[in-house]
Design a protein around this nucleic acid. Structure first.
Lengths: 229, 229, 229, 229
DNA sequence: GATGAATGAGTGTTCATTCAT
DNA sequence: AATGAATGAACACTCATTCAT
């Protein structure tokens, strides 16, 4: 009988813990996010974060191994989401020798759909992504933009080859690679630009249409290579 | 007597110094450049710079007010050159209501010439510009890219209006502004991309052709607004 | 009904605990030993020990009052064994005025037997003794070697007096005391040296013979005082 | 002429500096010595040292790279003296096949002279050597005693071989090596013992006679190997 | 022009220990 | 018997900056 009372107490306490417990951790992450956004990874002060959260630095070190891990706790989750979304859309291997006639705009249109999805993810954790893209200097994420570019580069290279009508990878010149790399970079920059300059996802979606139009124009011109002389 | 001896010595030393004078300053700037490139503005250590230059921090503070001014001494000159070059090409006021029929590619071609000039300037002080664009976080130049964008934005906005056949500034929508801002940004990013990824100006010039072709394609598509639906 | 099931579970857990009980403590002591050996008393981290043992620091504090007590749990037992063994051999009061003629080597031989016993004890808990002798700095055992020396000093002083033919304690000079203290110290050092440099007791026993021979030679020379001038 | 003027000024300035300048450094070293002696290398607090010296930690870091270097500044000089003295006495290569008959005590007597010199050095910086031998745990000097032993081991091994009448190094058994190593160790321990237990060099010299007598007795017994069975 | 010395506030991090549950 | 959370003081060390000389 007495034991059962104990158990009830226990269950109750567990529930309380569940709520209580993580509150400090959550508070810490919130305050960290704020500080990181305000000052960037490097200039952010753990002391400040802890003071703001109302705990000692020791408490922070109970939850997080070091500054890096605290930062990771802020941006890690969102980053994984983003990576997964990108992978879902860009990783599917297309036949290298596709039907040359049917492509061009069509493929790019598919890309537009993908981009909309990505945009959606980005605006879900707008602040975290801004942190990642612009304020991560000094952390292990400082090269994250480059690695995102690399993630989509392969996809775009394949698409480029299809459009160009290349039948073998051997046809790819270093000039081809360079321009595709640039276009991949540009794609990522579009996202960052939207993230930085648009308040809402809705607005971003609207502006993205124009940016995509611009990008598609660029792609077509690149394929045709009707270059300025 | 003893004092006069001291004075003679002092004068002698000053003469020696005079020659050394600028050499020390130059040495300091060189070492600063190296350290700033290696670690970025924030992580760069004045102590290290001085040690490398073979002087004490006190000596450094004779020449430079603070860390910021030392950084400025490295990147300030090149920045002014760049600004001037940009201004020379982008600042001339064109009649807002131009001859609508004659434009499009023509204007962009002029831009290409301008870009070639800018590229030339950029590669003249490649390292300094890279420093400015990528490693200035924490200094007053951390937003330099944005301000460069702003510098060319007005120019591009005018061009855009001409191309669109707008007869009044009142026709410009916020959507117009947004895409023009993006295209301005993209133009700057092209430069940075070339700076980062090309060893020589020559190679950059080659790759820039393709990038410009891409950009022109984007512009045309933007003007036509044959958007994806 | 449900509650009673819970109770059974609880009781079961308690029983499991009961068995685990000492297991946790033992695990803790094992891990502590490892850490203390690896890093010495001071640098050893309770956090590490607990992590290694798979429990929280709180759990450790249930069993042990503090770091010191944990250390004691590792080395205390062996230390008592050693103390007892030493006491058994060295504490028996001999008649101060013994039969002067019969001694010298004989007494030392008895000592050799004692030493063999001690060696046996030492190698039984080799690691613990090494910990005590070499890595206890910062703990209350940091002077343990000195106190071991003190333990045998009285015995050796008596023996020395016998050998010298002193009939009263008043004959003992401070010089006598000093050299006897040194010889006591040396005796202990022999043990430590063997502990450090021999893998097995067997090997130590072999080497100890030579060391004892050396020691006896030293004693005889000391008694005769055929000193270098 | 002019240069000599410079020199005079320079020398003057140097003298002024010499006096002023190093006072802080000297104070720091003194306070460091005190703290290191009191608490040992590891537990010594740089903060305390600086507070005691009346400067900020930053000032300390102007003179010393880190804790280790500060410690080195306390004990490094004396250590070099000691090493040199040891080297001077123990490094001279003796003919491996010496005149077997003439040795034994003679060589050991030479050693006694050497030891007197070493003792003299040791008492010159008594505190520093005590620091080195007993409180250096955690610093790079924590194994200094072992390395001193190693320094004299080779010398003693040669002497041992001469005394034993070995004509080739191949005669040396691992048992020989062990006992010689021990005797080398014992020699060093004699010094440490004297350092710890004697106030003055004079007293140490007196006590050392007896200890040496003991040691020589040990050596002779070892050579004769009239072992206890 | 340049040195050597010093400041003072700051950094991230680790520690043994405590305690309500 | 053990957890999870938290404390608070301490740690060695680095920084840009100042200033008398």
């Amino acid at each position: 009988m007495l034991l059962s009372v104990k158990n009830i107490t226990l269950l109750f306490l567990i529930r309380v813990y569940m709520e209580n417990d993580k509150q400090t951790k959550i508070k810490l992450i919130e305050c960290a996010k704020k500080e990181f956004i305000e000052k960037g990874y490097m200039k952010a002060s753990l002391r400040n974060i802890c003071k703001e959260a109302g705990v000692t630095t020791g408490a922070m070190y109970f939850f997080f191994k070091d500054k890096e891990e605290l930062f990771e706790s802020v941006v890690g989750g969102p980053l994984i989401s983003l990576m997964n979304t990108i992978r879902a859309h860009f990783d599917q291997e297309t036949d290298f020798i596709g039907d040359v006639s049917s492509i061009t705009k069509l493929d790019l249109k598919e890309d537009y759909v993908a981009a909309s999805d990505i945009l959606s993810v980005l605006f879900q954790f707008k602040e975290e992504y801004l942190l990642l893209m612009n304020k991560a200097q000094g952390s292990k994420y400082e090269k994250i933009v480059d690695s995102l570019v690399e993630q989509i580069y392969e996809h775009y290279l394949q698409m480029y080859c299809k459009m160009k009508g290349y039948t073998s990878k051997k046809n790819i010149t270093s000039e081809d690679k360079f321009i595709v790399h640039w276009m991949s970079h540009d794609q990522i920059d579009i996202f960052i630009h939207l993230l930085v300059h648009c308040e809402t996802e809705k607005e971003a979606a609207k502006q993205m249409k124009n940016m995509f139009n611009y990008m598609v124009g660029g792609w077509i011109a690149t394929i045709r290579k009707d270059i300025i002389k």
